[in-house]
């Protein structure tokens, strides 16, 4: 079969070319990442990628202090944990009737949700600020949590409803005949069966909030309440000359949780992020 042999050798050549092309692009993507990792360990870090003069953990020592790292990270955890919890609970409750009962209102409701998913939240931050000043929610943790949850809810409801549709209805019907309420069958039967789906919604919401800069930057004013996404700017402003090694060390500490969470979820779902199912339609 000459055709097949020719195809195969052509394919091997193409694989090598593809590998080379990919590695070249990846090298360009890796340079900034290499900078942050190497600088964090470099006693004399500057702005360019270079092999450190020696490895040191001094940069980490210098930033691992209450006012620089622990307080902002704790603030981030409170804001994003609270926001995520509120998002996931509200989304699970809302998804249940949308997934389980037929109603004429389902379609318009879901279309509105889908529409809201796409709105640029950045654009409404100025009016949200003005509104929060009026109702005395400005510079409060709970106000920021409520807004975080509201901005993440449309996508969370959309994802949650799609995952819930995958749980067969028959499993619940037995529970219904035994007299279980909707809430009971949601908590005891449906949610445990869609564990990976709930995990995706939780991790996605948390990661989005953890990295969000604009919302806390606008809605919080007191420096003590600022999460890491805002406080990281202090490395430039208040502390005189910028110590790049410490900035890099802080960036590593601040980024690690979301990378770990992503790896966790991606592993469980077998590589590709389950977002594919939601955005492909």
């Amino acid at each position: 079969m000459p055709v097949r042999t020719r195809l195969r050798s052509r394919r091997t050549g193409r694989r090598l070319a593809a590998d080379a092309g990919l590695l070249a692009v990846a090298a360009a993507f890796a340079l900034p990442l290499a900078w942050v990792v190497l600088s964090a360990l470099d006693p004399h870090a500057g702005l360019r990628v270079r092999v450190p003069d020696g490895l040191t953990l001094d940069n980490f020592d210098a930033v691992l202090k209450p006012d620089i790292t622990y307080t902002p990270l704790l603030n981030s955890l409170i804001l994003c944990g609270g926001g995520t919890l509120l998002t996931v609970v509200c989304a699970a409750l809302a998804a249940y009737p949308l997934s389980r009962f037929r109603s004429r209102l389902n379609r318009p409701f879901l279309l509105t949700i889908l529409f809201a998913t796409c709105l640029p939240i950045t654009a409404i931050m100025v009016p949200v600020y003005a509104l929060f000043v009026r109702v005395n929610l400005i510079d409060t943790v709970q106000g920021t949590i409520f807004f975080f949850a509201a901005s993440q809810l449309p996508f969370a409801i959309w994802l949650m409803k799609n995952f819930m549709d995958g749980v067969p209805k028959e499993l619940e019907e037995a529970a219904w005949t035994d007299g279980a309420s909707s809430l009971q069958s949601l908590v005891r039967i449906v949610l445990p069966l869609m564990g990976p789906g709930v995990a995706v919604v939780t991790v996605f919401s948390f990661v989005m909030m953890w990295g969000n800069f604009f919302v806390p930057f606008m809605l919080l004013l007191t420096p003590d309440q600022m999460p890491a996404s805002v406080s990281i700017n202090d490395f430039f402003g208040n502390r005189g000359t910028v110590v790049y090694g410490q900035l890099a060390a802080f960036s590593v500490i601040y980024s690690t949780p979301v990378i770990l969470l992503y790896v966790l979820v991606a592993r469980r779902l077998g590589g590709g992020f389950a977002l594919g199912g939601a955005v492909k339609g």
Partner: peptide, 12 residues
């Protein structure tokens, strides 16, 4: 590598 760049917080 490409996904890490995406998962990193915006400010970082």
């Amino acid at each position: 590598i490409v996904i890490t760049a995406w998962v990193l917080p915006e400010v970082v």
